[in-house]
Design a protein around this nucleic acid. Structure first.
Ligand code: MN
Ligand code: MN
Ligand code: MN
Ligand code: MN
Lengths: 218, 218
DNA sequence: ATAAATTTTTAGATTAGTCTAAAAATTTAT
DNA sequence: ATAAATTTTTAGACTAATCTAAAAATTTAT
């Protein structure tokens, strides 16, 4: 039996290792889990004991095949629940992450299969993140950040890198959502801010906003 | 902050005390929670500390106003989730209880309000149990057990006392569900078994079945 | 190549929830 | 009314997850 806390650590390791390829330091893990390094070390030892990670003292941890499967399943549940909350219960995209953090731990394969079908087998969550299918396969879409955009080209918004409610509410206030058309007008050399045209309106976004907004050529 | 375990104990106390009116012994509580009396005693002390129950040594515990509010809210969530699982995800009524045991602990008032609206403000769950509204008020329906039925009268099934999957599957096998018409033909004096007519078919049910099936005059 | 700074691990405590075994209180039976 | 049986509480121990403080290993700077 796997505990809720173990699932959360495994998910954090997955994200920090960029889809399970790099070793994750206990310090980075502690930071991500808002806990102390000593706690992360203890947990990593336990996860190694249970064969969810390979762990070498002072080198960090990396998910095993079985750990990776668990991580992907938790992520699948998280994102499906987010779709449910937005599409069916009409929550706004900035409200669902914390709720999905709770719902992702509900244990029932049948529930998640039925939820998936009820939602029409969605491939992406409300933030544009891909939803792994029941075999754990993702459909990645070809995207860049607004910071990497070409001047005078036209794009549409396809996702966010930061899905904190602060950032999402900033986008709400500026009427930017998934699918919104963005024309790139100018890039300021001094601070890397970018002038764009959205919904017939010109505006300037900071580099930090541009780094967190994913776009795709139309 | 209330823990998941505390919520489960509070809910058990609520049910054992018949809607919060009688004192509950630590032994009965331990039995209901599938744990030991010593654990129940410890928990009851903690709940008393937090003012969710009044507890007198050797006498048992009874919910306070605030404990009762928590119990009713957990029950509301449990039953709304059961409706969701049956009505929207097409689970069978014998599969949903265990899942609802997990879902009832998701913390978000807004979620439960929206779920309630999404389901059309249902008043009863898939087992015929009343769903408290957001103020904690139940709409009790007037029901008796099949064991209390009059001979030669006609009733409809409106609920179950035992919602274990074993009992519900017995009902499934005999095509008895909420709303099913039941004609009472004969009561056997020897073992209190009852001969009924359901779906044009005569059958005999044991007293233990009759005690667990709620019916209402048509 | 040492020394200093940083990262990581270990040691020892703490809290929630559980258990077993034993003591205390209450209830039931004679 | 006393003894026996039952119920309930207490004492002490265990596991999971966390923390602080200190020790050990690694990395960076001189
Ligand atoms: Mn999320
Ligand atoms: Mn998301
Ligand atoms: Mn139930
Ligand atoms: Mn029910």
């Amino acid at each position: 039996m796997i505990t809720l806390t173990e699932e959360n650590y495994i998910k954090a390791i997955y994200h920090l290792s960029k889809h399970g390829k790099e070793m994750v330091s206990t310090n980075a893990l502690a930071e991500a889990m808002s806990t102390k390094a000593s706690s992360a070390t203890d947990m990593v030892k336990k996860l190694a004991e249970k064969n969810y990670v390979d762990y070498k003292k002072y080198q960090g941890a990396i998910l095993t095949e079985s750990g990776s499967t668990i991580a992907i399943n938790v992520i699948r549940k998280h994102r499906l629940w987010e779709v449910f909350l937005v599409d069916k219960l009409h929550f706004s995209w900035d409200e669902v992450h914390e709720l999905a953090e709770q719902l992702e731990h509900i244990k029932s394969q049948k529930l998640i299969d039925k939820l998936d079908a009820f939602l029409g087998h969605p491939t992406h969550d409300p933030h544009g993140d891909p939803i792994p299918d029941k075999h754990g396969d993702f459909t990645f879409i070809d995207k860049i950040t607004l910071a990497q955009a070409q001047i005078n080209a036209t794009y549409k918004c396809v996702g966010v890198n930061d899905s904190s409610s602060e950032f999402l509410q900033y986008l709400n206030n500026n009427k930017i959502e998934l699918g919104t058309k963005i024309e790139v007008l100018h890039k300021e050399a001094f601070d890397s801010s970018i002038k764009i045209k959205v919904n017939e309106l010109e505006m300037v976004v900071s580099n930090s906003v541009a780094q967190n907004l994913y776009i795709q050529k139309t």
